[in-house]
Simulated scan of single mutants.
Amino acid sequence: MARPIKETPVLKGKDAERFAERMETVGRASAKEIEEARKAYEAFKAISTFPM
C-alpha cells in the first residue's frame, strides 16, 4: 500500500527571502542546455516502449 504524501513545508525567514529573490531572477536556458535537454529527450524517446 502506498504511503501518504507529507505536506510541503512552508518557507520562512531568510529561506523565504532567498527563494523569492531567485524566482525573480530566473534566466533563460542557454543554447547548450537546450540542446543537451533535447538529446536526453530523444534518447529516452528511443528506448521508450509506450506511445508518445
Rank of each mutant, 00 (worst) to 15 (best):
K45H: 08
R22C: 10
A16W: 07
M52T: 12
K6E: 11
A31I: 14
T8A: 15
P9Q: 06
V10M: 13
E33C: 03
V26Y: 02
I5H: 04
V10H: 09
F44C: 14
R28G: 05
P51Q: 12
R3E: 13
Y41H: 09
P9V: 02
A29Y: 00
K32F: 00
F50Q: 13
I5L: 08
E35F: 06
R38S: 05
A46Y: 00
Y41T: 09
E17A: 12
E35L: 05
A46W: 01
E21T: 08
M1E: 13
G27D: 08
A40S: 15
K32H: 06
L11D: 06
K14L: 11
R22I: 00
P9T: 05
E35K: 05
P4V: 01
R3K: 12
R38Y: 02
V10F: 04
M52Y: 07
S48D: 11
I47G: 09
I47Y: 01
Y41G: 05
P4D: 05
A29H: 04
G13E: 06
T8H: 05
A37S: 13
E24L: 12
T25S: 15
K14H: 09
E42I: 02
A40C: 09
A29K: 11
P4T: 01
S30A: 05
F50M: 14
E21A: 15
E36N: 04
G27P: 02
S30W: 00
T25A: 14
A31Q: 14
A2C: 14
E17P: 02
A20M: 07
S30H: 06
K12D: 13
V10N: 11
